[in-house]
Design a protein around this nucleic acid. Sequence first.
DNA 1: AATGATAATGATAATTATTATCAATAAGGA
DNA 2: TCCTTATTGATAATAATTATCATTATCATT
Lengths: 147, 147
Amino acid sequence: MKHSSKELVLSSWQDSLHRNGFRVTRPRQQVMEIIASSTTALTPQAIYQKSLEWDQSPGIASVYRTLEMLEDLGLIQQIHQPGGCHGIWPVVEGHNHFLICRDCGQMKVIEGDEDITGYIDNIEKQTGYRVDDHWLQFFGTCRGCLD
Amino acid sequence: MKHSSKELVLSSWQDSLHRNGFRVTRPRQQVMEIIASSTTALTPQAIYQKSLEWDQSPGIASVYRTLEMLEDLGLIQQIHQPGGCHGIWPVVEGHNHFLICRDCGQMKVIEGDEDITGYIDNIEKQTGYRVDDHWLQFFGTCRGCLD
DNA sequence: AATGATAATGATAATTATTATCAATAAGGA
DNA sequence: TCCTTATTGATAATAATTATCATTATCATT
């Protein structure tokens, strides 16, 4: 029996909650399910709206509380977009860059390319800053929205 | 007589308002002054707070209205940071990348390096996306905060 | 499987940020 | 200087997030 990536993510998240002494409750499972299933970075409000499709759904306060917990555990992160707001996206192994479709919001995660390490060295030399992290995001149109 | 960069920015912004039929009012001048003088990307609320140091200051609504106008004119942009909120920063010629100090918020603008064009080509080939823009931001510690 | 300590929830009040409204004001061309 | 009207300031309305607290449900222990 083959497990989908989503199921692997969800079970590892549940493990993480247990290991850190957090209970695995229905509201938390629902929020995690929505995040892990999404192909776009969702805002807290959007997550709450999606949860309303269930016959039973978490209160808005629990959505925010769950997001805070997941972020503290390093399981999710905020992705910023030109519009102004940020959406929620799972943290995955390694350093990532993001590719976002302006039309439908669909996201792709790109394995961090080390091509820019040279660039970073230059910046450190020229500015005197010590650089310890960076964001690289690409915006454009996905295959499906190009037609 | 040598004009500072700030003065050049402010006079070009005023020209832009005039050319586009906007009046140059005291509240607008104050907001522009604060943005052009800042070494960090300020939120609308932070701009309003700074304006209160004057004996006369714009209402909060005028701050928001001025920011919307300046953004529509392409004179300012929103800079996103890990904290969650975004700050206001002048748009300058060409494509830029940003270097932000985590401690004091001080920003440096880096002339867009074309090193990543090859990277973008690869991404387009591998994903089928058409990429038309990107954000590259570096986070770290500035010279002053390193001590 | 039942119990119990307590973490977590849901409902809602409180807070904060942003936008809309409108009478009064001031910019800038005539 | 006058006049037209774009803009302002005060504040109401809206939206998003956080805090409060009595009730509920998880899960280690029995």
